[in-house]
Amino acid sequence: MVGTLAIIVSSALVYSAPLIFTALGGTFSERSGIVNVGLEGIMTIGAFSATVFNLFTVNIFGALTPWIAMLFGGVIGILFSLIHAVATVNLRADHIVSGTVINLMAPGLTVFLTKMIFDGHGQTDLIKARFGKTSFPILKDIPVLGEIFFKDTSAPAYVAVLVAILAYYVIFKTKFGLRLRSVGEHPQAADTLGINVYGMKYAGVMISGFLGGMGGAVAVQSISGQFSISTIAGQGFISMAAMIFGKWNPLTVMAAAIFFGLSQSLAVIGSQIDFLKNLPSVYLQAAPYVLTVLVLVLFIGKSQGPKANGQTYIKSK
């Protein structure tokens, strides 16, 4: 029983980690008033660049490679997210249209580059250094809990949890957070108080690029092990749903992401679990998506995000 639970928890954490990072990214963006449906594309870019980085530097960084590659994926994510920032903040593009462009662009661009780098193949080579399974010293020896939570588990997931706590602190306790939120709620009021509205929106989108890129990097380095067009298939959108379900609060967003990670992982490991074994796989595969819809309908309804979310702020001069 403890063994089954340990499998469920650790695989749920593996699948949750990318969602937590990305959903937190979306939270920063939307807190600044920029809707970001491009998270999927940002994850794709992050996953691709981390894979390439991992493959080419594993000889230099060794076991640390996945972590550095994760940061690298985040940095490339920032660069990519700038397209969204420029389009929505300066050029007054519709946020959803611009996000859709990100989602259309990312797969084409990454597969194009994959073919350039890997002799015309549609997917990259397999990476050698993955996140793998981590056991936390001391903690792993706690009876029962140690085996479930701290043995052979996903280290990025725990980093993601820390990032969520940090994000909560930043958004609700710091000067930066107050200003970020003010811009998403009432940009004109913020403007009259001398807050750099465009700057804050850029910050929000770029943080979403960083965290989304890291989310993609974590996904590829702990789940598929190589990049192809199907590495990121919907995680970005699910992260968006987690952000809404978590009502734009980093801690509840994290909880929602873990919930979706769990339901995603069940579709994968269902066959290893006794009471799920005989269920047709379609139920477990469709479950996260159907659950999302039900959760939105039953618990959120008209979701109340930041007041000026999705609106272009035009500074008059």
């Binding site: 710091t174 000067k175 107050l178 003010s182 709620e185 009432h186 009021a189 108080l193 807050i195």
Partner: peptide
Amino acid sequence: MLIDNFTIAENIILGSEPTNGVA
């Protein structure tokens, strides 16, 4: 020019917030 979801204090200090270190 007020933000409904902010407290009175948050509305007043916004843009010139007193801090202790970071918070």
